[in-house]
Design a protein around this nucleic acid. Structure first.
Length: 426
RNA sequence: GGAGUGAUGGCCGAGUAGGUCGAAGGCGCUCGCCUGCUAAGCGAGUAUACGGUGUAAAGCCGUAUCGAGGGUUCGAAUCCCUCUCACUCCGCCA
């Protein structure tokens, strides 16, 4: 959520941000109108309350002195009714105002390229040449099916489309990757491992920006206000919701493995085959809480932490600077890391690393004090996949496939696979 | 699931025949004094948000906040209702 002061004092800056994102600039004027209305109501109701308070004290004095106060009491009865009515009006205005505020996206960092679609994202890095195959590389779902390590049909039967069973060494590979990633981030990059709840409440979803605007993307549990986590970012960021951290608490690095659940509303027909777009997938997520003045360097380090995993696995990737049209709701700046997928001859997103600045911190009320006496300030939050595990499995299957249909295990992963060097049909 | 107890400021903890309670006291913290150093001791100060005023900061005025929401009342931390969370006992269970 944006600082209301920015909307009041620099409305044109926000309108401009909205235009660059392809969003409506009118939201700003809607906010301003409601904000003015709120102030009018507030002034009126507060002066009435001031009156009521002072008269009530007078009543107390009169009664203590054993005097009659009936006239004042009758008078205040009307004032009380008026206050009640104005409070109702005020609440209605504030609810709407708050909703508008919660649905305005973050202002992009000045370095974000302006663009109209994902085609305007800017490549900032490319690592490793894409491999040349002496044979026609297959997509991972074909490889996996032949090897008998993924069963999409069973997923469809037992649950529905976009669910999958991992079997045998397939399941082992997924688990190996989770451990591999967690070990590197905790052991080499200084992150603290978290295993959070996989179900969160509405306040948490609102804190990270997944609500109220994107409720249709989430799986909601019936008869409750609980949601399946769409990413570990939600529970881990909300770990410090409504807290005031000490200066020495920052920066804080967390890494968490969780399954992620997404309804994929609006993605019908896209990526229907393979592991790319599942309703449930595993992800190792990095989350940082930092001082405002250090968030961009911390963000860059986090991007590098994600890249490290791909480099250890020898998987070719590129990094994209996301343009205003593709930035997403909360981030002020976002780099996507895309891994090479030979089976379909394209790069696919495998990590998304964002600096939210104080956007989430303001929503979730996550603050810190520089000094014991200082006023609390909002922290900056940063997060990124490190990495999406299912897509990593897909990338390994495609990049390490061999002509006989087997798949070599990346060297770094062999210890995690119990010494298995090649996945063959069993 | 059944029965019960509780939720107060950074922390602990008073405060119920409703009125001067933003809230005693303690701890912690900040500043000062004292002191070879440290510790102890002494003094002062220590919530947040919003609105108004102010060039700005400070200050001043006002409103709200004693788990959340609603109700009763001229007036609620104190009374009533609903909800959430925590703890205790019983039952059930991985």
């Amino acid at each position: 959520m944006l600082d209301a002061r920015i909307l009041r004092n620099e409305p044109e800056r926000v309108r401009e941000s909205q235009r660059k994102r392809g969003e409506s600039p009118e939201a700003v004027d809607e906010f301003l109108a409601l904000d003015t209305r709120r102030r009018e109501l507030l002034a009126e109701v507060e002066s009435l309350k001031a009156k009521r308070n002072s008269v009530s004290q007078e009543v107390a004095k009169l009664k203590k002195a054993g005097q009659e106060a009936e006239q004042l009491i009758v008078e205040m009865r009307d004032v009380g009714d008026r206050i009640k009515q104005l409070d109702d009006d005020l609440r209605a205005v504030e609810d709407t105002l708050n909703y508008v505020l919660l649905t305005i996206p973050n202002i992009p960092h000045e370095s974000v390229p302006v663009g109209e679609s994902e085609d305007d994202n800017v490549e900032v890095k490319k690592w490793k040449e894409v491999p040349d195959f002496a044979f026609e590389p297959k997509p991972h779902w074909e490889i996996a099916e032949t090897l008998g390590i993924l069963d999409f049909e069973a997923g469809g039967k037992v649950t529905g489309s976009r669910f999958v069973f991992y079997k045998g060494l397939g399941a082992r590979l997924e688990r190996a990757l989770i451990n591999f990633m967690l070990d590197i981030h905790t052991g080499e990059h200084g992150y603290t491992e978290i295993l959070p709840p996989f179900i969160v409440n509405r306040a948490s979803m609102t804190g990270t920006g997944n609500l109220p605007k994107f409720e249709e993307d989430a799986f909601k549990l019936m008869n409750s206000d609980y949601f399946l986590v769409p990413t570990a970012e939600v529970p881990v960021t909300n770990l410090h919701r409504d807290e005031i951290m000490q200066n020495s608490d920052l920066p804080r690095y967390y890494v968490a493995f969780t399954p992620c659940f997404r309804s994929e509303a609006g993605a019908a027909g896209r990526d229907t085959r393979g592991l790319i777009r599942m309703h449930q997938f595993n992800k190792v997520e990095m989350v940082k809480f930092t001082h405002p003045e250090h968030s961009y360097e911390e963000w860059m380090k986090l991007v590098n932490n994600a890249e490290t995993i791909l480099e250890r696995l020898e998987l070719p990737y590129r990094v994209l600077d996301m343009c205003t049209a593709d930035l997403g709701f909360g981030p002020a700046k976002k780099y996507d890391v895309e891994v090479w997928m030979p089976g379909t001859d394209q790069y696919r997103e495998i990590s998304s690393c964002s600096n939210f600045e104080d956007f989430q911190a303001r929503r979730a009320n996550i603050r810190f004090r520089r000094d014991p006496q200082a006023k609390p300030e909002f922290v900056h939050t940063i997060n990124g996949s490190g990495l999406a595990v299912g897509r990593t499995v897909a990338a390994i299957l495609e990049n390490y496939q061999q002509e006989d249909g087997s798949v070599a295990v990346p060297e770094a992963l062999v210890p995690y696979m119990g010494g298995v060097k090649v996945i063959r049909h069993s």
